[in-house]
Design a protein around this nucleic acid. Structure first.
Lengths: 207, 207
DNA sequence: CCTCCAGGTTAACGACCGCTAACCTCCCTG
DNA sequence: CAGGGAGGTTAGCGGTCGTTAACCTGGAGG
């Protein structure tokens, strides 16, 4: 995950601004002129970089899903490598997944917003691809979760994962009104709550 | 909360279908002709019932926020009445709030979707009203939550509430792919997870 | 039976928006 | 220094969409 140090390309500028605008006002609520203006060029100049407005959204959504998935796979691999004989404790792997998702949710709020909001605006093929990536990501979480809580049935585990995604992806609703002290505290709170939610899902016993 | 038995008025039909369509394809992604077609009339016939497309969205969003808030207030009042001298246990009140929110999230998924997705499409005045109702609703939860977990600071409590809303509002993402057995089981799972998340937020102690 | 209005209809206008066409400049390279 | 491509520009076309206008109709009320 070598942190980029070189200047962002024009394409990347456009994608970033488009993501922000799409998240703020919705895909159909933003015109190409606005996107162009946000990067200092105007209107149809965008077509030197993208085939069309749809292509920008597609690249954003595929990028998000892919990034989440490959990040998670990487973390699994690291855990397997560091764990020696019989792998790392499942709890540790789950924590790693949660941490990765939180980092993404806090660093790229517009993308997180787009991720579950504008999927249906894609052409059939792109939508299928994104959904497939999303499904893989979910299944990966489900597997780890069921190692931590073996009593959890698969459908319930899948629901639990989706619900925790909802919890972690709530970050866009937090800011705005002088919410939490800092990023670290927010991340830690979210992490604790996710673990708490999973624990409650995994052990039906309650007074 | 006397359950309606009489037939829905045309206005209500329109609102219901509009909510579904807006949730599926976004406010700007749906045309008035489509909304009309969904209730058997076509296009501009809608203007006999609403001043415009914006008015439908406004009525939907104000209705949602209002319904959530008044429902919650009612539950608080019931709890106070049933609790005798020093009120019901805060835990019970919190459970009641959670239950109410889950009922709404499961029964009116399209509305839940709209609720945090299309707020910015409203005119200034309507948006302010909706935000005010939402804020009251949140503050009501925060108050109850901090009675259950007095160690929880107010900003953290507010964040926790928003996050649990994210968790509970994840219901639209559940269905579709043969998820959970039934509504009852889903509701119970969500409830346990919400309590677990709150508990984890309220007591920072962890091994 | 006449009236009238609630609740429709179709036609059409005006605005907006995505996209293309045609043209203009640097700047890099042989 | 010729030239050519990368990356802009503005003008404008074609389609869509929200909204209005003008007209129609069935049924309730005097």
């Amino acid at each position: 995950m070598a942190t980029r140090t070189d200047a962002p390309t024009r394409r990347e500028q456009i994608l970033k601004e488009a993501a922000r605008l799409f998240a703020e006002r919705g895909f159909h609520g933003v015109g190409v002129d606005e996107i162009g203006a946000a990067v200092g060029i105007s209107g149809p100049g965008l077509y030197r970089h993208f085939a069309g407005k749809d292509a920008m959204l597609a690249e954003l959504l595929v990028g998000i899903s892919g990034q989440l998935l490959t990040g998670a796979k990487l973390r699994l691999k690291e855990a397997a490598a560091a764990g020696g004989e019989d792998g790392t404790a499942p709890e540790t792997v789950l924590d790693s997944l949660i941490e990765g998702h939180i980092d993404f949710a806090l660093d790229d709020r517009p993308l997180i917003t787009l991720h579950d909001r504008e999927l249906d605006r894609l052409r059939e093929s792109d939508r299928k691809l994104v959904r497939q990536l999303q499904r893989q990501y979910v299944e990966l979480w489900v597997d780890v979760l069921r190692k931590v809580y073996p009593a959890l049935a698969e459908p319930a585990a899948r629901s639990a994962v989706h619900s925790v995604f909802g919890l972690l992806n709530s970050t866009p609703h937090l800011g705005r009104r002088g919410a939490l002290p800092g990023r670290g505290a927010t991340a830690e709170l979210l992490h604790r709550m996710a673990r708490g939610a999973f624990a409650a899902a995994g052990s039906p016993a309650r007074a």
